[in-house]
Design a protein around this nucleic acid. Structure first.
Lengths: 205, 205
DNA sequence: ACTATATTTCAACAAGTGTTGACAATTGCA
DNA sequence: TGCAATTGTCAACACTTGTTGAAATATAGT
């Protein structure tokens, strides 16, 4: 998980450059961050950035690699699944390194195709399957994934990128619960019919 | 609502420039769209763009003015309120001019502060009050507004900006309903306790 | 100390940006 | 037709961008 501290001198400045880039990309997006900005923050010459990573695009690619490592949801109740999903995403967002990577992708994706492409790949390859497994043979897996993605993306965008007051005002500890309550009805509706609670609320036997 | 067609020649090219800018801003964002791009699409000289609007920033401001004109929700049931809200937003998104304006803001806001600021102003001034009115004296108006904003922003981002397959795959006619089902439980939870349906589902008298 | 390698600095490039002011063309009015 | 105002064109400015290659410095091995 955590990188071991680099030994050789070049590896150390290489790491400084990567750290600076990750932070700046997250704060301002890829296109709004210049190679010179990165170099200044890493306290080195702009030419070194290119020398060590080949190009700005390659630096972006190197700095944004990550795995959501979503938990398995198959067989859980909607409430439990919503809790795990919400807690997992909040943990990713509030952890510095993974948070910066996620913010970089979200912030850049709107006018930087490689970022958008990576986000699409992450959702198709990691989120979609987990939701489909939860829904079982329910034909509505597509709709459910769409709704889950909306909520997750919406919270992340509003809180970390747009900084909308209603979302920034929420304390981090309350965040998982708030997301879970939005997610639970969505997940409940995604289950196959015979597993659904009846509308009049009669508890299942 | 619709502008009357311009009479003088300068007003006509001014309108061509505004149209071109609105479309390009929506497609690529403000910063990724150059004055020369706009001029090319409007079939005029780049200098004219500045002449007629003063600066690129001023052109952005002029082209992005709009009013959500949200319906009043006070006193509605959660289901009805969710339906109206969802239908209203979808109509905005799927109408060319307002859709382009919304996309411009959303796409640019991630690395263009004026866009972010305008989005925040729209939510604080237009969405928040409508939700607060619906919630009545419920103390949870803030949370409810946060959740509503998440869903709305998330759908718009995923469908129109990131183009995530699960969201782009939904037919426009099905979209309002899909959003409404996400919104309804959120709005229901935002009502003051004495108006809430009991957990065991007993219908109110 | 001298050499060879690793690391960094510097100056410059070509391309693209928003913006400006001087000039040319077109239009409408007398 | 001639004059004046409106509208459009052109070339250039100052600046920033990613990237490059040669030169300078620092580090380590003998």
């Amino acid at each position: 998980m955590t990188e071991s501290p680099p030994t050789t001198r070049s590896a150390r400045t290489r790491a400084r450059i990567a750290d600076a880039a990750r932070a700046l990309f997250a704060e301002a997006g890829v296109t709004a961050t210049s190679v010179r900005d990165i170099a200044e923050r890493a306290e080195c010459d702009p030419a070194l950035v290119i020398r060590y990573f080949g190009s700005k695009e390659a630096l972006f690619t190197a700095v944004v690699q990550f795995d959501l490592m979503l938990p398995e949801l198959r067989g859980l109740t909607p409430g439990a699944a919503a809790e795990r999903l919400a807690g997992h995403f909040v943990r990713i967002w509030e952890t510095r390194e993974s948070g910066e990577k996620f913010q970089t992708l979200l912030r850049s994706a709107t006018s930087h195709e490689p970022s958008a492409e990576r986000l699409r790949a992450v959702f198709a390859g990691q989120v979609q399957p987990v939701i489909a497994a939860f829904c079982g043979e329910g034909a509505s897996a597509g709709d459910t994934a769409a709704k889950v993605a909306s909520v997750v993306l919406g919270v992340a965008l509003g809180r970390y990128i747009l900084r909308l007051p209603p979302l920034t005002g929420i304390a981090p500890e309350r965040l998982p619960d708030l997301i879970a309550t939005s997610l639970e009805p969505i997940l409940a509706a995604g289950l196959p019919a015979r597993l659904q609670p009846r509308e009049d609320g009669d508890p299942s036997p």
